[in-house]
Amino acid sequence: MIYLDNAATSLQKPEEVRLAVADAILTMGNPGRGIYGASLDAARMIYDTRSLVSRLFHAKNPDQVAFTANSTESLNLAVEGIIRPGDHVITTMMEHNSVLRPLYRMEDKGAELTILPADKDGCIRWEELETAVKSNTRAVICTHASNLTGNVNDLGTIGRICNKHGILFILDASQTAGVFDIDMEGMGIDVVCFTGHKGLLGPQGTGGICVREGVDIQPLIVGGSGTQSFLKTQPEQMPERLEAGTLNCHGIAGLHAALLYIDRTGIEFIRKREQLLMRRFYEGVKDIPGVSVYGDFSRKSLDERAPVVALNIGDLDSGRVADELAVSYDIYARAGAHCAPLMHQALGTAKQGAVRFSMSHFNTEEEIDQAVKAVRELGRWGQEIL
Results as ranks from 00 to 15, higher is better:
299 R>T: 12
133 V>T: 05
353 G>L: 03
247 L>T: 02
248 N>K: 04
267 I>P: 13
95 E>V: 15
5 D>E: 15
239 P>W: 02
160 R>C: 11
309 V>K: 04
137 T>Y: 12
121 D>A: 09
133 V>Q: 11
29 G>D: 10
361 H>C: 06
333 A>Y: 01
220 L>V: 07
42 A>C: 04
86 G>K: 02
14 P>T: 14
330 D>F: 01
312 N>V: 02
200 L>W: 01
364 T>A: 07
305 R>N: 13
377 E>K: 13
2 I>G: 04
118 A>E: 13
380 R>D: 11
349 T>C: 03
32 G>A: 01
149 T>A: 07
181 D>Y: 02
382 G>T: 08
135 S>D: 15
12 Q>H: 15
262 I>P: 05
8 A>S: 15
332 Y>D: 02
349 T>Y: 03
386 L>Q: 14
39 S>H: 08
353 G>E: 03
202 G>S: 11
79 V>D: 00
51 S>I: 01
173 A>S: 12
6 N>K: 09
319 G>D: 02
15 E>V: 14
371 A>V: 09
271 R>E: 06
285 V>F: 08
118 A>N: 08
309 V>I: 12
65 V>R: 01
190 D>S: 14
172 D>M: 10
282 Y>V: 07
219 P>Y: 08
294 Y>I: 11
220 L>D: 08
324 E>H: 02
119 D>F: 06
97 N>R: 14
283 E>N: 14
107 E>P: 03
18 R>G: 12
185 E>Q: 15
242 L>R: 05
187 M>R: 09
154 D>F: 10
146 S>I: 14
46 I>N: 00
255 L>N: 06
243 E>A: 01
143 T>G: 11
384 E>H: 07
111 A>F: 09
58 H>S: 12
356 R>T: 09
24 A>T: 07
182 I>H: 02
132 A>T: 12
110 G>K: 05
114 T>S: 15
362 F>E: 15
77 L>I: 03
189 I>D: 13
354 A>G: 04
295 G>H: 06
291 V>I: 14
330 D>W: 00
364 T>E: 09
228 Q>P: 05
82 I>D: 01
